[in-house]
Design a protein around this nucleic acid. Structure first.
Lengths: 221, 221
DNA sequence: ACCTGAACACCGTTCAAGT
DNA sequence: ACCTGAACACCGTTCAAGT
């Protein structure tokens, strides 16, 4: 938030940049209650008028694209490489989900936004495919594994970002078993001090990896 | 599309209903290029003015909620019950994904929309939890399994609904292994006459179930 | 109770004018 | 090249009037 007023015309030093705009938008998303952000609010937070933004980004979706870049860079930083394909895949999945789970309101939008040409995301894919292929998977299988794991990650991130009571049976009496299980899950999570969504993610990721290992082991050499 | 013009005032027979509105919106979503639908277009398709819609639904999100009901009813119809928990889970997952994959543009919205009280979805959960518990899983585990599988389904449905070239490395030369694997995957899918996204879904679902079976088998009795 | 017609509100985007 | 100010466009929602 900049409090000085600025007159019309080009300022002496440039106030904005594509990256700064995206970082500010990300902050607004984190602070805000609701899913999106307003271009007006984004401009105000930058101490600028809305129309100024369009000198740096082509529109709102370009801001989201830049946000994806920010987040995907963090995935690369957090995921330490491992010589074991399954460990590498697991760590990548955890870092991927953590990056999104830290910014829940971005998930729904980014999940459907195409990956741009310049994206760092492709580099991470390249590394993973390399490792999977050298472990014995075919290139096509490697792609499918990555897409499957990524689908699970995005779905889990969506689940984390969904309202708490997304599935809450509430006061319904016609689904007693479901209601009891819902409650048991909440208690288990509370006792472990984690979010219910984390339990499901851990369970699912473990199951996926166990399954993949066993499928790789079972194949003809 | 109704071509007759109607004068002001209450018509002799009611033209609209909540269900009809949602069915028409679903049809618009299927036919349309882009992700959403316009209330104006929805009204026109029903031969009515926009404001009329608000006599039956509280707003656009209520239309989406009704669409979810329509789709979830179809899941129930398609998924045949099985005495084996893993088969039941697999069939449910397939039916679930098929229902969404048939209407790609609904996925992104429905994934973040809370499940209403009256939803049929809860009934399906109740049945699945019952079956999982009697197979030996705890209630909390059963919930986590369902949530994990559902996350995978929604993520996969998002993947199916994403633009074809969502991950396309295009002409990039800095990610050769990824580009080759991407191409290999496309060829494999083309040879089998299925969408690439289907391959990833099948592989991932199989891995998940193999993993879950082995985890259930490995536990102390 | 349920439709029409007109108005309002919100918000993303454009563009000439200014330095 | 980059900001301001004003206008425009689009679209969801509201509400009085009419039967």
């Amino acid at each position: 938030m900049v409090s000085t007023t600025r007159s019309v015309g080009r300022p002496r030093v440039s106030v904005l940049s594509r990256r700064l705009i995206a970082e500010t938008a990300l902050r607004l998303l984190d602070e805000g209650e609701d899913a999106g952000f307003r271009m007006t609010d984004l401009a105000r937070a930058l101490g600028v008028r809305v129309s100024s933004l369009y000198n740096h980004v082509s529109g709102k979706s370009a801001v989201y694209a830049e946000i994806r870049e920010i987040l995907s860079e963090r995935i690369g930083e957090d995921a330490a490489p491992s010589p074991h394909w399954d460990v590498a895949l697991r760590d990548w999945a955890r870092a991927y989900r953590a990056a999104f789970a830290a910014h829940p309101s971005t998930v729904a939008v980014l999940a459907v936004l195409p990956v741009g040409e310049s994206s760092m995301v492709s580099v991470a894919y390249n590394d993973l495919v390399t490792q999977l292929v050298s472990a014995g998977w075919t290139p096509a299988e490697s792609m499918n594994i990555i897409v499957a794991v990524e689908s699970f990650i995005l779905g889990s991130a969506l689940d984390s970002s969904a309202p708490q009571d997304m599935l809450d049976p509430g006061g319904r009496t016609d689904v007693p078993v479901f209601a009891a299980a819902y409650e048991a899950r909440r208690e288990t999570a509370a006792r472990d001090g984690v979010a219910p969504a984390d339990l499901a993610f851990t369970l699912g990721l473990d199951a996926l990896l166990v399954g993949l290992r066993s499928q790789l082991a079972a194949r003809p050499v």
